[in-house]
């Protein structure tokens, strides 16, 4: 679903948001599927969820945690938070795609989903940049970066540590992709439909 196949077409804001929301919905669905599959296959009974608390590398980003907070943030700030969230996944997704194939008996579906998520997030980022260009031309570029430093655990020799590193990564990807999807749906209703979806 490329946002703008030929690259030069002038799409309405509504069409752009409609496409973005379809994409963000799809990305979250994939993220959910890959997490649930991993959880069922590798994490049952290991208590990983207890260790995953406060474990996301993006938790330092000031993202809204409920509807009121999300509605109080100016649209351009929320759009930039979405971009920060997505950029924070560039490196981890690259490593996920690289390493997931090495998991013991990793199902092909998991590997292909990881690649698909990586590709679709790039599309989503491209589309959001276009919207920012239309909604807030000349918006300054300062952005909050989140560092991801869990590659060593992803490559750990000890299987328990390695499996937990994957679990935590997929748990956070599921969460952040849901945030992005939710925020884009709110932004669409605010910017395109003046809060009257």
């Amino acid at each position: 679903l490329p946002i703008c196949p030929s690259g030069d077409c002038k799409m309405s804001l509504q069409d752009m948001f409609d496409r973005l929301v379809m994409l963000s919905h799809y990305i979250h669905s994939l993220s959910s599927e890959i997490f649930i599959e991993f959880d069922q296959r590798y994490a049952q009974g290991r208590g990983f969820i207890a260790k995953a608390i406060n474990g996301c590398h993006t938790s330092s980003l000031p993202t809204p945690e409920d509807k009121e907070q999300a509605q109080q943030i100016p649209p351009e700030v929320l759009l930039k938070l979405v971009i920060s969230l997505l950029h924070a996944w560039n490196d981890p997704l690259y490593q996920l795609v690289t390493e997931v194939g090495g998991i013991h008996e990793a199902p092909d579906g998991m590997v292909s989903r990881a690649k698909e998520i990586e590709a679709q997030i790039k599309q989503l980022l491209e589309g959001i940049q276009k919207i920012i260009g239309q909604v807030h031309p000349g918006a300054n570029e300062n952005e909050i970066y989140s560092v991801w430093a869990q590659l060593p655990s992803l490559q750990a020799a000890d299987e328990e540590s390695r499996l937990f590193a994957f679990y935590n990564l997929l748990h956070c990807l599921r969460r952040d992709s849901h945030k992005v999807d939710n925020y884009l749906k709110i932004l669409k209703c605010r910017i395109v439909y003046q809060n009257n979806c």
Partner: peptide, 9 residues
């Protein structure tokens, strides 16, 4: 359910 704001689809 609040569908207008986009918080819930």
């Amino acid at each position: 359910t609040d569908l207008r704001s986009g918080w819930f689809t």
